[in-house]
């Protein structure tokens, strides 16, 4: 029983960064912009959170700094993919190369050439018996609900979905496609930044080079698996968080499988899930297609 609660608690913990990343993916792709740069934005968020939290002693400032830093990097992606109609995959990849460079540079700059930050103040959590839940887990759930409400119950959501499905149609009705996409990509970066923060100032308490290792891409897989729906993505992240929890729980004990092989589990699981679900999940029609005024 105890180990089940432990597993559940670790699952929630490890799924939280993924949830933020996946929600970022949902909002961006719903507006028609593929955001492969989620990973890079999470890395930036991770370093910003740890640094700001360390220097101010206030983890909430770290959390907000992470969102702002993620959004700033997302601005680059928005400029490239919305204004310049660039190849969104290349732009995202470039951001994924740029971000670790910036993160490490900043880390070494602030912490005397060290590739990892000192221990920073963590965000608070609540303990229920054997179960501990960090506040970020609750914020993530809250964001999922808010995003669902915005996307499906408000006019902004209607417009975002319209822009992601048929931008020319939205344009003819006077909806500014570029503005909607800019906003969604920026929000996407902010959420990814929060995701990075919930790794470095909630799960662990410092920035390291491998703090974010493929989480952004797993989050993207969760977007597909979750059919571009906030709740679907949330559920998918729980599954992926569970596999990571398994790695942590089993890796610590005397399990027969070598730890290196066990570490592959989340990545293998992602591929398996994609094989099973990718064909049944339909992306927004204009996802990844730059909108150029006048072309249809």
């Amino acid at each position: 029983m105890e180990s089940i609660i432990l597993l559940l608690s670790i699952t929630l913990m490890y799924s939280t960064p993924l949830v933020f990343g996946a929600l970022g993916g949902v909002i961006s792709e719903r507006s028609g912009v593929t955001n492969i740069g989620i990973e890079g934005m999470m890395v930036i968020g991770a370093v910003a959170a740890a640094t700001a939290s360390y220097f101010t002693g206030n983890p909430w400032i770290g959390f907000l700094a992470a969102g702002a830093a993620g959004a700033l990097v997302a601005l680059l992606h928005a400029v490239a993919s919305v204004s310049f109609a660039a190849d969104q995959t290349i732009s995202g990849v470039a951001i994924n190369m740029l971000a670790p460079g910036i993160a490490l540079f900043a880390c070494r700059f602030f912490f005397d050439g060290a590739a990892m930050s000192p221990i920073a103040t963590k965000l608070p959590g609540a303990v229920f018996g054997n179960m501990s839940i960090n506040i970020t887990t609750i914020i993530a759930l809250l964001f999922a609900v808010i995003m669902w409400f915005v996307l499906y119950k408000t006019k902004w959501g209607l417009r975002i979905r319209a822009v992601g499905e048929h931008p020319a149609a939205a344009d003819t009705l006077g909806i500014n496609v570029y503005r909607v996409r800019y906003a969604c990509v920026l929000v996407s970066g902010m959420l990814a930044g929060f995701g990075g923060a919930s790794m470095t100032i909630a799960i662990i308490s410092q920035f390291t080079q491998t703090a974010i290792s493929g989480h952004g891409f797993i989050a993207m897989a969760a977007v597909i698996f979750g059919k571009w729906h906030p709740f679907g993505a949330y559920g998918a992240c729980l599954l992926f968080g569970f596999t990571q929890a398994l790695v942590v729980v089993l890796g610590g004990g005397n399990f027969i499988v070598p730890s290196q092989i066990l570490s592959m589990l989340p990545y293998v699981m992602t591929i398996v899930v994609l094989i099973l679900f990718v064909g049944r999940s339909v992306a927004p029609k204009a996802d990844g297609v730059p909108y150029v005024k006048g072309s249809r």
Binding site: A80, F84, A85, S91, V93, A94, M97, L98, G101, F105
Partner: peptide
């Protein structure tokens, strides 16, 4: 890495 990332990013901008 910042330099290289920037270079790739600029090449991604087609225009």
């Amino acid at each position: 890495n910042i330099m290289i990332g920037t270079i790739v990013f600029v090449t991604a901008l087609p225009g």
